[in-house]
Amino acid sequence: MRKPDKHTIACILFAAGAAAVGLMTDDAYYLQVLIFIGINTLLALSLNLLMGYAGQISLGHAAFYGIGAYTTAVLSATYGFSPWLALPAAIVMAMAVAYIVGRPTLRLTGYYLGMGTLGFGMIVSIVFREWHSVTGGASGFVGIPPLEIAGFAFDTDRSYYFLVWAVVLFFFLLSRRIIDSRVGRALRAIHDGEHAASAMGIDTARMKLHIFILSATMASLAGFLYAHQVYFISPETFGFMASIKIVTMVVIGGMASIWGSLFGATLLTILPEWLHAFADYEMMVYGLILMLVMIFLPQGLTRGIIDLYESSRKKHDQ
């Protein structure tokens, strides 16, 4: 039997830790925070595949998050479908939109790609706001039902916590497999130099489109999980600032790092809760933290802290 690799061990440890936390804590507030961390981790991971590994920036990723949330909301609340039927619909919807938008957009590079995805994100969030009869408009969509499977409803915080983190874990393992596969190597080749990659025989356009679609699917799934947890959605959750926040999670956590996504999502979810003590200074402090982290640890906190730790240990050893 093949010896399990380090990532698998880390995932098992992580799963055990997550399960222990889920079983031990009774505080619904913590569970709620952890659920949001899980959803944000999924978002950050989805964008990290696109941005960290394939090097394609997206400033409109929250659009797919919103597409997932609104598709399931409309199907399950307005038309009364089971959420489990709405789930594939949300995924197909995100994939279709990603395909249509991705084909022309991914031809762009650099800031142009950033602006293209930003424009797409803005259009989607305006559609959520203005398509009043379907989406409930600016004041939001109410009455999304809880998830249910064979008579068991995921309506408690604990059950939902396990659901979210099981999904996150699944995508951790899946991402690792993709990254370590031929596809992953191709993606990194695209990141390092698109022309070189295509000269090596990689179909860069197709590869980028595929990772974009996968990324959109994951974001849409995160939207699905969000909608059935909060029971309410409104356009600003999926607007421009949300897209920027996802990018920030990826960069702060560490690009091209699966664990970095977890770290970035955790930090950016908890930080506002901590900064609450600063009251009116909160916004200022938040901006300052972002800047300082990027100035001094441009590789992201995960790598940055490890590097600091290792260099201090080296000094200590000498």
């Binding site: 505080d27 619904a28 507030y29 913590y30 709620q32 925070v33 949001f36 939001g140 969000y226 909060v230 309410f232 959605i233 409104s234 600003e236 959750t237 506002p272 809760e273």
Partner: peptide, 14 residues
């Protein structure tokens, strides 16, 4: 932000 409102409500209650 509605998500913050949910978290705030949870925090206050629990």
């Amino acid at each position: 932000d509605p998500s913050r409102a949910v978290m705030n409500a949870r925090r206050l209650i629990n």
